[in-house]
């Protein structure tokens, strides 16, 4: 029975695959409509940055990015809501290995440097807030695995403020541009470059915080709470 179910699932997937192959083929050789990249390159001069992907992410389609950061923050909120320990960082993990400590003393500042470079590079070549945030978060993971104490990893004020900081700055920029300018997120002429840099810097911090807190959010205690009506 189980085997028959698997076989029919396999057949269904294969059928869907063939239909997709057919439609990919027909789409690839019969496209209609205009070309979006041409419009992007025409508008690049007004975007405030030199790198087209950064321009799309933080100017042309900045609303997507705002909501995307919202999604990240939601995941972090849901993650830290699961943690019952007063500290997300379990003291039992702290070790004092001389070799690890020495290595980290070399690595951590280097990784900070890389993260800073990635933000700065985002304006004109591949890079940007998410990549830099990921490197920062990786630094945090390394520090945690290496047993360095990180006092800010408590589900307290500091952690929550850090999670929301980048999002809040982005949102404030959006509000200010809506009130003094034309529309939500429409940067006034000439300010786009600085506003984008400001947003990217704070986003880097918050993205690193989100990823790190999701990494450390799993410890649990053993007292499950009763749901409503389950007494």
């Amino acid at each position: 029975m189980k085997c028959r179910g698997l076989v029919s699932l396999l057949l269904l997937c294969a059928a869907l695959g063939w239909v997709l192959v057919y439609s990919l083929w027909s789409i690839a050789f019969n496209p209609v409509g205009g070309s979006l990249p041409e419009q992007v390159s025409k508008a690049m001069a007004d975007s405030g940055v030199d790198h087209p992907i950064t321009a799309v992410l933080l100017n042309f389609r900045s609303y997507d990015t705002l909501l995307e950061i919202g999604v990240l923050v939601i995941a972090a909120i849901a993650g830290i809501s699961m943690a019952r320990l007063p500290s997300l960082e379990d003291p039992a993990f702290r070790t004092h290995d001389a070799l690890l400590d020495a290595l980290q003393r070399w690595f951590v500042p280097l990784m900070w440097l890389v993260a800073g470079y990635l933000v700065w590079a985002g304006a004109h070549q591949p890079g940007g807030a998410f990549q830099a945030g990921a490197v920062l978060a990786a630094t945090g993971v390394l520090m945690r695995l290496g047993g360095m104490p990180m006092g800010f990893l408590q589900p307290g004020y500091l952690l929550r403020a850090g999670l929301i900081l980048g999002f809040a700055v982005f949102l404030l920029v959006a509000l200010v541009t809506a009130v003094v300018g034309d529309a939500f997120l429409a940067y006034p002429a000439g300010t786009a470059k600085y506003l984008i840099l400001l947003i990217e810097l704070f986003l880097t911090l918050s993205i690193a915080m989100v990823l790190l807190s999701l990494f450390v959010a799993a410890p649990v205690n053993d007292a499950p709470e009763s749901q409503e009506g389950h007494q």
Binding site: A28, P31, S35, L36, P37, V40, P52, I53, A55, V56, L57, F60, R61, D64, T65, E68, V71, L72, I74, A75, A78, G79, M82, F130, V210, L211, L214, F215, A217, A218
Partner: peptide
Amino acid sequence: HRNGTDPVVQALVLTGIVVAIAATALALVL
């Protein structure tokens, strides 16, 4: 294939990856 190098879809995919990471991390915690 249609447009040559297309910064729009590359940006879309970056957004999509971040969303997928958020969902994956949440699922892992759960």
